[in-house]
Write a protein that binds this DNA or RNA. Structure first.
Length: 753
RNA sequence: GCGAAAGUGGCGGAAUUGGUAGACGCGCAGGUCUCAGAAGCCUGUGGUCAUUAGACCAUGGGGGUUCGAUUCCCCCCUUUCGCACCA
């Protein structure tokens, strides 16, 4: 009987769906295993690169099922977001319609890949049933002072006409559309993630089964640093100005002070400046620059004409304004120690400001302040304080502790921990998202929507012009409402939430996906969570995973869940790329193996036709995607599954090769026909001692490799086993092969046994 | 600039704790089947030298530790990724 994957696969996919084999009764006993793939944004068609992610998850899920675990593998849709709205503007389709039809298509694709999800728990973030809890969550955060409205300089994308979170600005550009991001002062809603900075940082140490890389990225992003706040008296202001430093031991070397141009005291300091107009012009120029431009401009500054008093040397030190000092970090003011900080050093050299050495290396000469080419920056035991009064001779760590004690004793400052992390800006001036449940009343100010009035539903019949921002703001019926407090006329908030709010708690919702009385069922959540295995792309290393960890802690603090970390084990799969050459004439892709070089130009081997050289990643924007449809039509889903997992270690980037698929197909064909050659069950085809040995070696190898995500070598072990088996067929060993192969090629193996 | 990871055949990639480098697959070559082709099957396939037997060289480059190094240590080169004036 020939191997006809199409027939077999459709049959079994239907059978699994009909029998609802993946449906889990969350109340049934058993050793739970919660397996979760990051839920996708339904953008339309899925290519083989997406497939890798879900096939990986499915193989693992099926493996744990076979081990007898109560395995849960749910799926949902991260369904709000800009592309849907852009599609509406461009093509006149309603975002909801666009989203729903994409969901249908992707669901069908999952089915064709033979992936088993528990669809009884399906959720979509654009359903009022889901986003009402988004709104409820926001109200709880608001009650606890963790959601607040503030005017702040924000990142504004002029093309998408909306504000972006810091995390969504990459190299000064909009992560989505690549436009240059500008700064604007706007009233926006923030979530106070900074309150959790310390816990988010400390929690990373407990995540022993997360990739080090991801933890490091989060740690850097949170950017915890320990130092001291110190007050410097400014006679001209009649008060002190506070600075933050991580090197209080170098305070004797602070020869000037630098403020961010946005610092609130700047106006007073330069009020009687001899060339005030010029300084103001300079400030304005700097403020109009993006962070990127500022950095490219090099170090620039202006002298305010005023002085501060160094609290340890009692010398007057000049106060400067500098483009390299950031208002958003620390106090927006620094003490400059040019001898021991490279940035201060460059600034000092630029404006001929004094450099003083207050730290010496353990060996060798004390640097010469006049001639040194760069700052001397050493913060360990090997360096000691010099020219520094009470801390003279102390090694740096000890000097830091001692000077902080003195600062605190004199009440001019204190030990301080600061973070690079800033509050999470969640307002978006966009339609397709969760409406922020707030009302503005002239009399009562900002009033939250009462919980029993949730959800605040997104009106569906609004016009999409693509101009002048949020269509929601122009919908009178939505905007005009009454104040829940005084009953008078009031207006609704028309901003919607960043979609990362939606995805920051969905993993908990699956457990009680359709419970319309509460956001999560605490008892069930505590049984099934945290997620045992979370799988998704590395691109979420900071954004999604940090927000999810934050929101999980807020849920914990509200008593809704009994854990602080949502994902016990994390795996980031690599991207699939397709390297090849695009045929200039036909627009098709030719694999690198089929190309030879003639006179330095790529030429297709068989035809001798000239090609245009192009190499790019497999993603929509590059249109060299491999659609799985043809592949499945020709070879079957099991072949795609085996090839996708065989191609490379799953955490690595992998290059797709159309020829490589053939190998997987041959392998499955051989396994299929092998059964026919083994003599019937009774007595025939018993295993030799060496085959039995090989069988057990293979069971051991494959089992261990599955648990370590080494699917590529698990498959090679199975190929090896099948090669041995072909020499000396045995019914028993063959049955083992099929079992081990089942999570990888479920349709074929199911058909065979 | 700071931080992290990685460099193995023509290609994707193997090599538990240091122990036969190149498993498995692609590709390629020869054979078989066929009127012919495709598919399948069989054999071979790191490099150099040699008719053979075999010898020597090989895991980015250079040193070191060891009886023995892809693996451990030091220096250098290259690539990829992350952060980027965070005081």
């Amino acid at each position: 009987m020939p191997y006809e994957p199409k027939l077999i696969e459709e049959k079994w996919q239907q059978a699994w769906a009909d029998a609802r084999v993946a449906e889990v009764d969350v109340n049934a006993p058993g050793e739970k295993f919660y397996m979760l793939n990051m839920f996708p944004y339904p953008s339309g068609d899925l290519h083989v690169g997406h497939g890798r992610n879900y096939i990986l998850g499915d193989a693992l899920y099926r493996y744990f099922r076979m081990q007898g675990r109560a395995a849960l593998n749910p799926m949902g849709w991260d369904a709000f977001g800009l592309p849907a709205e852009n599609a509406a503007i461009k093509r006149g389709i309603h975002p909801r319609q666009w989203t729903v039809s994409n969901i249908e298509r992707e669901k069908k694709q999952f089915l064709r890949w033979g992936i088993l999800y528990d669809w009884s728990k399906e959720l979509a973030s654009c359903d009022p049933e889901y986003y009402r809890w988004n709104q409820w969550l926001f109200l709880q955060l608001f009650k606890r002072g963790l959601a607040y409205r503030a005017k702040a300089p924000v990142n504004w994308c002029p093309s998408d006409q909306t504000v972006l979170a810091n995390e969504q600005v990459v190299d000064g550009r909009c992560e989505r559309c690549n436009s240059i991001v500008v700064q604007r002062d706007l009233e926006q809603w923030f979530l106070k993630i900074t309150d959790y900075a310390d816990r988010l940082d400390a929690g990373l140490d407990t995540l022993t089964e997360w990739p080090e890389k991801v933890k490091l990225m989060q740690r850097n992003w949170i950017g915890r640093s320990v130092g001291a706040d110190v007050d410097f008296q400014v006679p001209a202001l009649g008060k002190a100005m506070r600075i933050f430093t991580t090197r209080p031991d170098t305070i004797f070397g602070a020869t000037f002070m630098v403020l961010a141009p946005e610092h609130p005291d700047v106006a007073t300091l330069i009020a009687d400046h001899s060339d005030r107009a010029e300084v103001e012009r300079w400030i304005k120029g700097v403020r109009n620059q993006s962070n990127l431009e500022r950095q490219e401009a090099g170090k620039e500054g202006r002298f305010t004409g005023k002085f501060a008093t160094n609290p340890f040397t009692n010398e007057p030190i000049p106060i400067w304004l500098g483009n390299f000092v950031l208002m958003q970090y620390g106090t927006g003011a620094i003490m400059a120690v040019p001898g021991h900080d490279q940035r201060d050093f460059e600034f000092a050299r630029q404006y001929a400001l004094p450099v003083r050495i207050v730290v010496r290396p353990s060996e060798g000469d004390v640097p010469n302040a006049e001639t040194m080419p760069e700052a001397f920056v050493v913060k360990d035991e090997s360096a000691t304080a010099v020219n520094s009064g009470l801390i003279d001779g102390l090694p740096t760590p000890k000097a830091i502790d001692t000077i902080i004690e003195e600062i605190e004793r004199r009440s001019i400052g204190k030990k301080m921990v600061r973070y690079r992390l800033r509050d999470w800006l969640i307002s978006r001036q966009r339609y397709w998202g969760t409406p922020i449940p707030m009302i503005y009343c002239e009399r009562d100010g900002i009033v939250p929507v009462p919980e029993d009035q949730l959800p605040v539903e997104l009106p569906l019949d609004v016009p999409f012009t693509g101009r002048e921002g949020n269509p929601l703001a122009k919908d009178e019926r939505f905007v005009n409402t009454t104040c829940p407090r005084c009953g008078g006329a009031a207006k609704r908030e028309t901003d919607t939430m960043d979609t990362f709010v939606d995805s920051s708690w969905y993993y908990a919702r699956f457990i009680s996906a359709h419970d319309d009385t509460k956001i999560v069922d605490t008892a069930l959540a505590n049984r099934w969570l945290p997620v045992d295995q979370y799988i998704g792309g590395i691109e979420h290393a900071i954004l999604h995973l940090l927000y999810a960890r934050f929101i999980c802690r807020t849920l914990h603090d509200m008593g809704l869940v009994g854990f602080e970390e949502p994902f016990t084990r994390l795996f980031n799969q690599g991207m699939i790329t397709k390297e090849g050459y695009r045929d200039a004439e036909h627009g098709t892709w030719v694999a690198i193996a089929d190309v030879e070089w003639v006179d330095g130009k790529p030429v297709q081997k068989t035809t001798g036709r000239a090609l245009i050289a192009e190499i790019s990643k497999m993603s929509k924007s590059h249109f060299n995607v491999v659609p799985p449809d043809e592949l499945i039509e020709k070879y079957g889903a099991d072949t795609e599954r085996v090839y996708t997992l065989f191609i490379a270690p799953p955490e690595k980037e992998a290059a797709w090769s159309d020829e490589g698929v053939v190998g997987a197909s041959r392998f499955l064909n051989r396994v299929w026909h092998m059964g026919e050659q083994i003599p019937g069950s009774a007595g025939g085809g018993s295993a030799s001692a060496s085959l039995t040995r090989k069988t057990h070696q293979t069971i051991d190898a494959v089992t261990r490799r599955f648990e370590r995500f080494e699917f590529n070598t698990a498959i090679s072990a199975l190929m090896e086993f099948s090669n041995v088996l072909a020499e000396a067929p045995s019914r028993e060993a063959y049955s083992v092969l099929l079992q081990l192969l089942h999570p990888l090629a479920p349709h074929m193996t199911e058909e065979l046994w």
